[in-house]
Amino acid sequence: MPERSTLLRVEHLRKIYESATGDVEAIGDISFTMNAGELVCVVGPSGCGKTTLLKCLAGLLPPTSGLVEMDGSPVRGPSPAMAVVFQEYGRSLYPWLTVRGNVELPLRHKKLSRAERDTLVTDAIEAVGLPHAARSHPWQLSGGMQQRVAIARAIAYQPEVLIMDEPFAAVDAQTRADLEDLVRELHTTRRISTVFVTHDIDESVYLGERVLVLSNSPTRVQEDLAIDLPPERDQLTTRALRRFTELRTHVYDQIQRAKLGQVAPQSAR
């Protein structure tokens, strides 16, 4: 494995929403670091501020206090180093553009030649397995295929970090397995650093090299767990491994504790 340098650093991140019914603390105090080339899953009970965390990482929301640092410089707004895949693919893809148009759109303002841009777009669409659908409109595709388009758009953008917000929450189980394998494949072949937010414990263990378990209000990192499964993963064999079951049970346990507000006593090892 190549040497890994720190890519993303989050320190004492805190986010408070002001609303009519009073202040809501979405994120209490989160700190973690992520190395280049890692695939980190963030998992936590529903309503624990996962999406807020992600928006802070992506620079879409300013944190109330704390620091998000990318390659040593603080994130103050959306940056070309990050690309987001949203959960609501139907609202994140533009229905008036074709698949190709959607993937190409973020590249328009990058200083690329026409040929370079075309290559990037074609390559990304092929990487997600949709070359036949390039000229269709997103709404002509199934939900899973639409999410593939969103992933293609993100990787064509050539970000340093790919940020995915519960991307597969709205697709059926079979499609979901295919998409998970796609994310694994993109990660192993392209070494794209990925932050993958999910509420699905199995998914986080299956996909991640690391799993960050978040606790509920105030949101903190309950546990930072390394997933010591072999890098070659497979829906059948990996999920059948005893280690997979152990890790899964452990994360489940941690999340139950998190709901009750207990602090992690020990690690899985």
């Binding site: 959306p78 940056s79 987001v84 994140s92 759109l105 973020p106 328009r108």
Partner: peptide, 21 residues
């Protein structure tokens, strides 16, 4: 749509592109 706007934000789409696309 707010998600569409957020998408444009996250990809740092320019002002004209945002208007037109």
């Amino acid at each position: 749509d707010s998600v569409m706007t957020e998408t444009a934000d996250s990809f740092q789409i320019t002002w004209w592109e945002r208007l037109w696309f």
